[in-house]
Nucleic acid binder design. Structure first.
Lengths: 233, 233
DNA sequence: GGTGACAAAAAGTCAGACTTATTCATCACG
DNA sequence: CGTGATGAATAAGTCTGACTTTTTGTCACC
């Protein structure tokens, strides 16, 4: 995924971004453009472009006569897909995963409710197809296939909500679900109850039952929270 | 409060960003770096830095031999504070305001519930202070003072949730609330019921009653939705 | 009609010189 | 002593021009 190697400045970012988001430079640390350019063996122009990008992510601030200072974590643009990916690849991956899962638990039920109101018939069909795909891959260690349909399912829900802010979280959810399968929990077949819930959500959306779609999705996200030992109220 | 005039490339962005987010260039439009540099009377280096930033916001894509092509709206990083500001300042401000208010309605109740569990005593004190400030400015056309405390209130809630993703939405909520007061609805004193709800939320958080804090906040956000004629389920 | 070579176009890269704002230290003055 | 002005050092900011690389479109040729 991502967009690696789109030029020299991209390569610089692929190294420097993870370093910063991993907290290797404490807030207030000062980097010098010239030194960085030397370190990465690129020209100052290229280095400057990379710094501009980091600046637009609120990871650093460039000031005359001072240098490039690292901003405190609390100011980072944590919704930037690139930042999310860097952090998921780094040391505070568990923390990031928890934050994102809580975010999901807030967004997805509401999105499902809206989807029940706004989904087109094509989207309903896609949803059903995804749910059936999940069922088909729910037994016998077909985790890759299951994941594929799971991701697609949640993507469709978010898009069908008709809210662009929700729709853009599709990538984030995909990242979380993928990470969960690849690294963390879920060593064996998925929880049958979760699979059933997805099927029921698809039904509720098709039926236009917003309240039911919302509640069922809430149950799904509560399950996700519990997997990470995050207590549900 | 943005960060205007942080260099020539910033000035370019202040013009070009709003143009793109306003949809002046349809998706797939091609811009040339050299022409843009001429238009803004800056060097190519400066123009390239600006393009890099636009690229990191997924507004454009720069490809060799082709030029800088504008991406479809569906790919924009709509969570970038800069993009949000540009769009709020532009033509589809109403649409943006609706999206963000729906987002609020999903996030803030959950955040309030978490705040009831995690808020420090200092945060509880701040919250009460904000709520009282709202009460004090709720009558007699003191909209500026009311807004100030309202913004602070929601900021504290989001921060007290302990979730960094929620915390970073403080600026967005501030933007929405400010916009609402300055341009749109709310010509006279705020709804007394809303004021009361804020006080009650502060109480619930202090008491550690997560369910009550969540439900009361949900009522607040439902009110915000209704102000924009967005039907509540 | 498909295939491959060639040429044009635009972004990408680099090096070097110059400008400008900011900070810090020094020093004179109250 | 403090305090404020002065000036020098510093690192980012900017510009220019030359060169490279990749991609694409075209055109001849099979």
């Amino acid at each position: 995924m991502s967009t690696p190697g789109r030029g020299l400045h991209g390569h610089v970012l692929d190294t420097l971004g993870p370093e910063i988001t991993a907290g290797e430079y404490p807030p207030g640390s000062v980097l010098r453009t010239d030194e960085l350019a030397q370190r990465f063996d690129v020209s100052r122009s290229v280095m400057r472009e990379a710094v501009r990008v980091l600046e637009s992510m609120y990871l650093v601030e460039s000031r005359r006569r001072v240098g490039v200072t690292v901003r405190p974590k609390s100011e980072w643009n944590v919704y930037d897909p690139q930042v999310i990916r860097w952090r998921l690849a780094g040391a505070d991956r568990p923390r990031q995963l928890r934050s994102l899962t809580v975010l999901r638990s807030a967004i997805e039920p509401v999105a499902a409710g809206l989807a029940a109101r706004h989904a087109t018939s094509e989207q309903c069909a896609e949803l059903t197809e995804c749910a059936l795909g999940m069922v088909a891959h729910s037994r016998g260690h077909k985790l890759e296939g299951y994941l594929l349909h799971d991701v697609a399912f949640h993507r469709v829900i978010l898009e069908a909500s008709g809210n662009e802010m929700f729709a853009r979280l599709g990538d984030v959810v995909a990242e979380v679900l993928t990470g969960r399968t690849q690294h963390d929990v879920m060593f064996e077949d998925p929880d049958p109850a979760a699979v059933t819930l997805h099927v029921q959500v698809a039904e509720a959306v098709r039926a236009g039952d917003a309240a039911r779609a919302e509640e069922l999705t809430r149950e799904i996200t509560v399950g996700a929270l519990q997997e990470l030992d995050i207590l549900a109220p």
